[in-house]
Amino acid sequence: MISVQEQDFNQQEEYDRLKCKTSVGAIVTFTGLVRDINNGQSVSDLSLEHYPGMTEKCLIDIVAQAKQRWNIIESTVIHRVGHLAISDQIVFVGIASQHRGDAFSACEFIMDYLKTQAPFWKKETMSDGQTQWVDAREVDQDALSKWAVK
């Protein structure tokens, strides 16, 4: 399941959806939240813009790549857009597989690719009321290198 949405998501509902088959032996989930600090500056809220259409295609492609590399029984990627407050949930990746190794790897792979490929952009409002677009970080690009096919 892939969804780009404004509304919040429920961890229990997403977990239950991943747990739907009796062959599932491992579920790994990741949740990204809005932090109150970025680069040492105090953040008061966040807005997320995306490229409708391309975003969904990109997420479908990332999950398809993960399914080629690991044994995945069910997968969920949810990314929120629009206005978000501190501690709000931004992104959810959940992987259900037979064994934990596939679930851990696929979940991390999807997050690493999502952060560098999917067309989302964050704009922060700082505590002094100023707004600024978040810059892409090199560490996110570096994280991709560990998934290079050798």
């Binding site: 995306h50 931004i90 999502l114 964050k122």
Partner: peptide, 8 residues
């Protein structure tokens, strides 16, 4: 056209 992405 767009800047480097910053989702997640």
């Amino acid at each position: 056209y767009f800047p480097p992405v910053t989702g997640g």
